[in-house]
């Protein structure tokens, strides 16, 4: 028996629907069809009237969830692809995110974003949106990298009183497996040292954690021990765990699958530079995708995003300084 990352997301939703009558799922094709990725398979049959097909109206999907959350429900909205959430961005950034601040009343909802690149997906089915959402106050942004986190963090997201953007990586959906669902959960706002090491810190999140782990393995063969920190949640950002790691290694590489202008990796480097300058033995570095739309062909796509090989190269440069 094994559980995939996608199974974990489906199981978390099933458990939430079971435990809390205020939870419902709303999205395109999520009902009888079970969702474009089957993340809601069989849930409509098990929970009649609570797994609801929406029209192709991303703005209204999020707007409707905001209203339902104001009325005490806990909607989970599935965007078919993270990329399409741009159409619902106004309701998320200006409505959901401002509600608690403006009214003092919570707006508990989850926006599930099937995120990130896969071969052949191209410019409009590959995006990572975490930086845009994280920029706005009032939102929590989660980027689970493991099967266990996909399960426990989604459950925590649904239970939270705030709007949560849940960035699940499509590349991990089918291939990433665990023996079973976790019995215990690590709190969602805590970063996790995925691999300890003493020579250099590699901060990553979502699918990039696995590329970073592979890079660390490659460096181990060369005698270097890279520490991989999995952020898990990018907003709020667990700066303490990052700084503690840099205190051990003195060197930092921050990796993100999204574009290089701004974003999570820039935030990590900025915080370490300003709050942990004395800890550094080398200039902190970043590695991101190239600053172009995400290419369709696998030859271009695999050169566009950070990979284990490119991360290993960047780590060597940080180590050589």
């Amino acid at each position: 028996m094994s559980v995939t990352y996608l199974d974990a997301i489906r199981a978390a939703q099933e458990k939430a629907l079971q435990n809390d009558p205020s939870v419902f799922i709303y999205g395109q094709d999520v009902g009888k069809f079970g969702g474009a990725f089957k993340a809601t398979k069989n849930l409509a049959e098990k929970f009649p009237g609570r797994v609801i097909d929406s029209p192709i109206s991303e703005d209204a999907m999020v707007g409707l969830a905001v209203g339902a959350a104001m009325e005490g429900m806990r909607p989970v909205v599935e965007m078919q692809f993270a990329d399409f959430s741009t159409v619902g961005l106004n309701q998320m950034l200006n409505h959901a995110a401002t509600t608690y601040w403006r009214t003092g009343k919570p707006c508990p909802m989850v926006l599930r974003l099937p995120s990130g690149g896969t071969p052949g997906s191209g410019p409009f089915h590959s995006q990572s949106m975490e930086a845009i959402y994280a920029h706005y106050p009032g939102l929590v942004v989660m980027t689970p990298a493991t099967v266990e986190d996909a399960y426990s963090m989604l459950l925590e997201a649904i239970a939270m009183p705030d709007p949560v953007v849940f960035c699940e990586h499509k590349l991990l959906y089918y291939h990433l497996k665990a023996k079973s669902l976790p019995a215990e959960a690590v709190p969602a706002f805590k970063a996790h040292v995925a691999r300890p090491g003493r020579d250099v810190t590699c901060v990553a999140y979502s699918a990039m954690v696995h590329e970073a782990l592979a890079a660390a393995e490659e460096l181990a063969g060369e005698g270097y021990e890279a520490e991989v920190v999995d952020l898990r949640t990018v907003k709020p950002l667990d700066t303490d765990t990052i700084l503690a790691s840099v205190a051990r290694t003195g060197r930092l590489l921050a990796v993100g699958e999204s574009w290089p202008w701004g974003g999570v990796s820039a935030e990590v480097v900025s915080r370490v530079a300003s709050e942990g300058f004395e800890l550094l033995d080398a200039p902190p570095r970043r590695l991101n995708a190239k600053d172009t739309p995400i290419p369709y062909h696998p030859n271009l796509w695999s050169a566009h995003r950070p990979t284990a090989v490119r991360i290993a190269e960047a780590l060597r440069e940080v180590l050589r300084y």
């Binding site: 707007g63 209203g67 104001m70 009325e71 429900m73 309701q91």
Partner: peptide
């Protein structure tokens, strides 16, 4: 409009 619809759906 959709937010009001959401309140009504919740009710």
């Amino acid at each position: 409009v959709s937010a009001t619809a959401g309140v009504l759906l919740a009710k």
